[in-house]
Amino acid sequence: MKTLAKLAGSAMIAGAMVAGAAMAQDKQSITTVVKITGEGWFVRMDEGVKAFDADNEAIDAVQVGPAQADAAQQARIIEDLVAKGVSAIAVVPMDPAALEGVLRRAQARGIKVIAHEGDSIVNADADIEAFDNAAFGRKINDGLAECMGGEGKWTSFVGSLGSLTHNIWADAGAESAAANHPGMELVAAKNESFNDANKAYDKAKEILRAYPDIKGFQGSSAIDVIGIGRAVEEAGLVGKVCVYGLGLPKDTGPYLESGAVNRIYFWDPKDAGYVMNVVAAKVLAGEEIADGADLGVPGYNAVTVTQGPGKGIIIQGAAWVDVGKDEYKNYPF
């Protein structure tokens, strides 16, 4: 069995090397590996990959991913790509640590590796982060402060007290409010929604009861604003209470329409998909990406470049998008 597998493996590698050599002569290929296919977020990312493919005649760009969110299946797909001999792999890791081994093998074969949302990955040539998390939290709070007129009580929600990015956003928002708007008073900070809209709703109702004069909510989990929005809507407080936070356009749409949620913040996976391929192409061409470089995608016009945990670099954009009632339909995901 083992010998058979080895034989089959070497046969595949041999075949792949021939194919790879043949491909290298005409076209470079970049494969984007996502966490799961079919989910709205990654369907949108595929649009970015397809757009890059259409814009670049010399490069073949496709997106693949497992049918379910499973780190082991994602690793197997990358293994196949290594065997196939693609020029570069752009990956949105399910579990960064689980991919290190297979990515190291990929790099040993001369395949370039680009990651997104995986700044802890050692075996990558570059990692792309849409934005600085603290700046994102401040950005949401700025919107909230403007809506509140810089005055009054407000509170924040997190998916859970253990989720790192949510806490960075909530803390940065709180710091920004304390520093810039002395009139804003943070009450009952960091309520946990456990990524459950119903829990967010219950907590929001309770806060409306405990602080009848509350003026603002800052949400962190994508469903926080949905639960808060429902509480605000049912309490007849639309227009009197400001609701800002991370959200997805399609899911939050009904509450943006009713005005219960004022503005949602996110990043566009289409741009992230496109920019991963831009970076892959640059790495393949041997171009260096310097601090302040323009990658030609909105939000990635002056990126910050820092050294990553391995030999690779971390590229950080300022690619947040914020939409209200009028613009959310431009982002169909």
Partner: peptide
Amino acid sequence: SNVLVFVGIPST
């Protein structure tokens, strides 16, 4: 579980 915020107990 529904009166804790009301009484003023921090979420942690």
